[in-house]
């Protein structure tokens, strides 16, 4: 059963000064079944973040449709939890209040929302930092808080927009494994946008490759690597190595050197 349906998405920008039309997304269609972890990759400027913003309801598409559980998407809503690259935590709220924010907005009582928020904070490994303000945390901890904030409202799907791009390489590896650990417990459907091929292969059940602008779906590749996955043995995993090489070739990263 397809859970999220993205059907013939099309996005045209009109330059306000020159009145020129730019086709950012030509024709993008894909579906995600419930519980699957799907990455969207592609060359920079291919519109992968735009696709995510349309699914999130932040941007209205000029053509095509997005359906979640058969219902057309119109505007942002708590059924689609978004994790942002820049964390987007409220600076004036403590970690606890940030994580409880979605529940508060949806009318959950104080005691109950604090209990749930605490549970999520424990889950992402931020116990003891409940009373801290975001600026007092490291980048990795902030992103953990942002993930907890989204998980607290139990969204039907999680939309992650290059969530680890603003943290250092070491922390990124740790967070990737952490998110997979949490995902394994809950199996929320995930649409994950990244420009990092290794990350996409490591995290996902499926990787969808978008072409350069105007973008179309160039490939849709299943990742058969067994879970739970860990970085320690990934680089010797045959599937990982071959899929990674294939994707790199598609994105023109390594292909250029080998071409005759």
């Amino acid at each position: 059963m397809s859970f999220l349906t993205v059907d013939r998405l099309n996005q045209v920008y009109t330059d306000v000064y020159t009145n020129e039309h730019t086709v950012a997304i030509d024709d993008v269609s894909f579906t995600i079944p419930a519980g699957e972890f799907v990455s969207l990759i592609g060359p920079s400027g291919c519109g992968k973040t735009t696709v995510l913003n349309i699914v999130a309801g932040f941007v209205e598409a000029t053509g095509g449709a997005v359906q979640l559980e058969g219902v057309p998407v119109a505007g942002p809503g708590p059924d689609r939890g978004v994790v942002f690259q820049d964390f987007a935590l409220f600076p004036w709220k403590t970690v606890l209040a940030n994580v409880a924010f979605g529940l508060k907005m949806n009318g959950v009582g104080k005691a109950e929302r604090q209990a749930t928020a605490q549970e999520m904070i424990d889950l992402v490994g931020l116990s003891g930092f409940e009373r801290k303000f975001p600026h007092e945390l490291s980048g990795g901890m902030r992103q953990r808080a942002a993930v907890a904030r989204v998980l607290a409202t139990e969204p039907s799907i999680m939309l992650m927009d290059e969530p680890f791009a603003s943290v250092d390489a070491q922390t990124r590896r740790v967070l990737q494994q952490e998110v997979l650990r949490i995902w394994d417990l809950r199996r929320t459907t995930v649409l994950f946008v990244t420009h990092d091929v290794d990350e996409a292969v490591f995290m996902s059940d499926r990787v969808i490759v978008l072409s350069t602008r105007p973008s179309q779906v160039q490939a849709d590749i299943r990742i058969p690597i067994e879970r739970p996955r860990s970085w320690t043995d990934m680089h010797t995993n045959e599937d990982f190595v071959s899929i990674r090489r294939e994707l790199m070739g598609m994105l023109g990263v390594e292909g250029a050197e080998v071409a005759p």
Binding site: P78, R80, V82, F90, W92, M105, V150
Partner: peptide, 27 residues
């Protein structure tokens, strides 16, 4: 106020009224 804060609030289910008090005023 960063756009993503407004987006985060609305995607977490904040109504216009809530947005005003929870995001615009402190922001």
């Amino acid at each position: 106020i960063p756009t993503n804060l407004l987006r985060a609030a609305s995607s977490l289910g904040a109504s216009r009224w809530r947005m005003f008090w929870e995001v615009y005023v402190p922001g």
